[in-house]
Amino acid sequence: MSKIHVTTTINNEPVEFLCDGSQTILDVLRDTLGLTGSKEGCGSGDCGACTIMVDGRMICGCLMLGAEAEGKRVETIEGMAQGDHLHPLQQKFIELAALQCGICTPGFLVASKALLERNPKPSEHELRYWLAGNLCRCTGYDKIIQAVMEVAADLRK
């Protein structure tokens, strides 16, 4: 079976790759391009550990084919920090201990950033529902919610 040639943009860099028709964008990111920051927790879109942005839309990387990235703009956790400056969400997650094992953290950060870009003043209720597609088994979500709410308030200042 011949491979598909895909031209796309990942974290603002032009990227070309070859993939099988059955490979997900998550497989491509992790196995072909070495971007292992997006995690595979379930492979069925239930855990959110592979959350990425495609053309400004939040998706689970395990549910999109690599070939579908043609001509699209893909953003992953690896593109969130700017140079040696962490994004305020990344910084706050560390300061408030909003992670324990850290496997779900990339997904939560990408999803939280997407929310704040869309809704700079979410209520806690809205935030909890926005993040309901991201599973965390360590923290009970408390410190994650607290961190995002604080960053939202900081960014509004």
């Binding site: 920090a81 990344q90 992670l99 850290g102």
Partner: peptide, 9 residues
């Protein structure tokens, strides 16, 4: 290990 875990590193 905070920075490593919030950047995907």
């Amino acid at each position: 290990d905070g920075a490593d875990k919030v950047t995907g590193r």
